[in-house]
Design a binder for these strands. Sequence first.
DNA 1: TTGTATGCGTTATCAC
DNA 2: GTGATAACGCATACAA
Lengths: 351, 351
Amino acid sequence: MPTRRSTATMKDVALKARVSLATVSRAFAAPGSVSETLTQRIVAAARDLNYTLNVNARSLRSQSSGLVVVLIPDIGNPFFSVLLQGIEEQARALGLAILIGDTHGDRELAATYARLLDTRRADGMILLNGTVPNRAHDGARLSPQRYPVVAISERIPGADIAMVGINNRAAGFEAVAHLAGLGHRRIAHIMGPADNILTHERAQGYREGVLAHGCDLWPEALQPGAFSIRAGRAAMAKLLDGPAPPTAVFAANDEIAIGAIIEAKARGLHVPRDLSVVGFDDIEYAESYDPALTTINQPRREMGRRAMAMLGELITDPDHRQADVNLEYQLVVRASTAPPRVASRKPVSRT
Amino acid sequence: MPTRRSTATMKDVALKARVSLATVSRAFAAPGSVSETLTQRIVAAARDLNYTLNVNARSLRSQSSGLVVVLIPDIGNPFFSVLLQGIEEQARALGLAILIGDTHGDRELAATYARLLDTRRADGMILLNGTVPNRAHDGARLSPQRYPVVAISERIPGADIAMVGINNRAAGFEAVAHLAGLGHRRIAHIMGPADNILTHERAQGYREGVLAHGCDLWPEALQPGAFSIRAGRAAMAKLLDGPAPPTAVFAANDEIAIGAIIEAKARGLHVPRDLSVVGFDDIEYAESYDPALTTINQPRREMGRRAMAMLGELITDPDHRQADVNLEYQLVVRASTAPPRVASRKPVSRT
DNA sequence: TTGTATGCGTTATCAC
DNA sequence: GTGATAACGCATACAA
């Protein structure tokens, strides 16, 4: 007995429960405002008729859809997908549905998705990519005064948008401090892409760490790169080809770190005996890699949850000014870091 | 000059373009049916007024929302997130938006999300978890006659739902064939979770492979497990603790394979010298692992795209019967498999 | 507390 | 081709 697609409307429910249509609406929207008896009759009638609220109609009438747009540069990337998971959990708790948009790092595509705010009357948006879509030809349409927007991880320059993330500079500093504490003096840094905000924050932390601990800071110590294994390998190769290779590397994320380790291994080096590597993010596979990665853990799921919670408040009260939230990061020491074979002031003897 | 939220409606556009409301609607919906001159006037007026179509109103009237629900057991898992990426790409091409639901493997949650088909008048649904939500107390509501539904990867038993995936049995067979070809005779299989359909298909392929190649098939050769690194480790430990450990293992997915390798390494074994391991899925990190994983590549992105394309056809023509689609998989031989140290039937000479 | 009446912005059904 | 007009299903101002 295939149940038919519920075509019953509030009118039907009202008829069956012998109340007015308005009362049915109220019974569902504001449970307290309808008397006990009527509520029971209405609920029973709705059940019998297999009634389902038509959200489209509600959205049209109320001018808000219960939809939240989430803009992600790359869903396939575990870093983002776990963030999304946190967002999803909180959204569900708030009764909001998630409209997903993979921007592939393309601003034009991001703009397309951002338009859902208008066309679908989405209630808000979460940005995971550090850029405001469509700034160029669409001006201030995304200012939080118009639309509730929250950014994750990356501070968006020039936009008054609340953010939840961690202190990347401090984390970078701590990564270097860990290495320096192990005795390393020649520590390189493989950076993320140049147009990324996080890249600069982490690099800044690196610089401060190197300075504070009296480590070397030579011209090639800061290697440009990208958030990928391939880029990590390439940068590590350059570092190793240099006249005085580092004994340790701080990578701007775990994929870079893995790339660096692959390259080191390919050259017969042992990690961490010959080279220590610190990553960033603590993605799933960091723990299972060989060697297990020493890295900075970001509470990704929690970041997603908090961002969604903030957005929720912003939606219910658009005038509420949200302060940025910096969550706790954590240096997780595993097997990819160790004291240098020989302190680097004196020449390193290699077999 | 912050552009105001577009509050202009078709009525405004009609007024400004000096045409009727109906004509404006037609100009956008069926571009061919309105004369050249009027179309131009309408487009111009819409631009001037910064007009945006209100999709909620359209959905209410047309009884369809342009929304597709995607049910995923775990967005954080790279296997699924890349599938999602494929789905997203195709959906964008079709002008559909994706409503995402992470079921966390929970049927109750899945049912909740499936209700979006009713409440939001979603046009269809894609299932990534091998179960039809809400079967228990909601009967045949999800039959494709009522709602366009497509499943990915897992055939859903008892439901007449089109599927796109690969031939898991044949792939399992091929994995064993590869191992047997290398000279292995004692090949174990670490399975996925017992309630998963893929688990049985791959295990069946394993059995047939073992039989066809005259390999051993001892009682503990098939280890129950789950799709996780931890489960892979545990199962490998049992295998290694047995009286006559295998020289090779076919793992039901890459995470299991990684777990198996970790355990083997922890016991001082070398992979692939002492133990060969074949994975399944070819996730991102399979290539970068040490050793790089020999595994079965599933065209995940393409699977997502195809599923969404099929769903699109199903949406435009609900009576169209979609045939299952089996895409090409591929055994990717990398560094985690090698001939056994000593062949179990005949000795293999190794340098 | 409950009922009546109106409108949200579109598409569809008529006519012309 | 184009225009008037009636739904679509619900929320809410107002009246009772």
